[in-house]
Design a binder for these strands. Structure first.
Lengths: 198, 198
DNA sequence: ATCTTAAACGGACCGCAGTCCGTTTTCATT
DNA sequence: AATGAAAACGGACTGCGGTCCGTTTAAGAT
């Protein structure tokens, strides 16, 4: 499951001890199991995760720093899989389609993925903007596509402006509070994109 | 300070008892004082606010429900003042200027006001999107200006898309993490607006 | 002035995130 | 295999947000 790198010295993370790695895996599994068993991850306490994994409470915090850290680690699996489908999945989300098609596919996929993991993303903290690594990836991807579309202007900030309406609080407001259909939210984002690249 | 309505029955808030009103005011003042005295509002505990105001802890939660509620009440003053300057202040933020000028002035003013109260807004919760009342106001205002500009499309969602980059997490990422100048952030937003209304 | 009652009060109490520190385990070295 | 030091472990402990409930108080009615 967790691959130990063949040349650990090349990675700056200084090699994890065997018991530490075992407990990390056990804790992630325990957390996933508990979230499934109870309804909703906010009802799962850190102590319960520790107990389910058969370790002490201190170990949970040693491994993941905080509740948000644990949630972020949990989120990492799906986020990584999603990133892979953007990097090397089938078009139009993956490479091979025209840039505008890719951008629109990106938006639709991002909306769906974000709404699907909304609770986890919120619990993983940063209160609205996902962790820096995740943000960097999507920002870079959108900048890249905008460059291919030969869009002028301040690309880093323009990319951010296109990404902002795809953040959890905005989508939840639109879909869960205002009751708009996901399809309509996507259509509006696509409209925004077309105006920007025009 | 706190005006009692002449015809209380017309308001659905069922009239506040004198001691309750006194304590509400005392608590807001105490909270403001403590936030000033200590550095940063996250170092101020609810118990400390209660003590500073000379009331019991239960009273704080009775009046404001939660820590977020207290922070939201604190924020309400400046938010209301800002709304007033949009509704009836001098142009171009207030009425009297052409719609595009008003929209651009709105963006600049909103960016500045949001960054100024960023800590409070974050502490007031809803994890990224401000309280519904505040959101409704700005959304309505932007929709209104877009209508005057004869912009077509799904106006409610288009307005949201223009507002999303002005939320706290986005602005803080750009200004505090990436180190962009506020002026540049505003310029990028203005560019976005011009592309959308074109 | 007194009475009634709904509302407000205060502070002990609870649950959970996060810390601390004495004990145990891993693993590289010999 | 023995050893030593760095790392991990566990669970008691702390601090704060939030609740509960017995007591007090405001304010309209008589």
């Amino acid at each position: 499951m967790t691959e130990r790198p063949l040349l650990p010295l090349l990675h700056d993370a200084p090699v994890e001890r065997a018991d530490a790695a075992r407990n990390r895996a056990a804790l992630l599994e325990a957390a996933g199991r508990l979230i499934g068993r109870c309804g909703g991850l906010e009802r799962v306490t850190m102590e319960a995760v520790a107990a389910e994994a058969g370790v002490g409470k201190g170990t949970v915090f040693r491994r993941f720093d905080s509740r948000e850290g644990l949630m972020a680690a949990l989120l990492d699996h799906s986020e990584t899989a999603w990133q892979a489908s953007v990097i090397s999945g089938p078009p139009p989300l993956g490479p091979g389609a025209p840039p505008l098609d890719r951008l629109l596919a990106f938006g639709r996929s991002r909306i769906e993925a974000t709404l699907l993991s909304a609770d986890l993303i919120r619990a993983a903290g940063r209160a609205g903007t996902r962790s820096y690594a995740a943000y960097s990836f999507v920002a870079m991807h959108v900048r890249h596509l905008l460059t291919e579309l030969e869009v002028g202007g301040d690309l880093p900030l323009l990319a951010t402006a296109l990404l902002a309406p795809l953040e959890v609080p905005v989508l939840e407001q639109q879909v869960r509070v205002e009751g708009f259909a996901v399809e309509r939210v996507y259509a509006a984002w696509a409209d925004l994109v077309r105006r920007v690249v025009a």
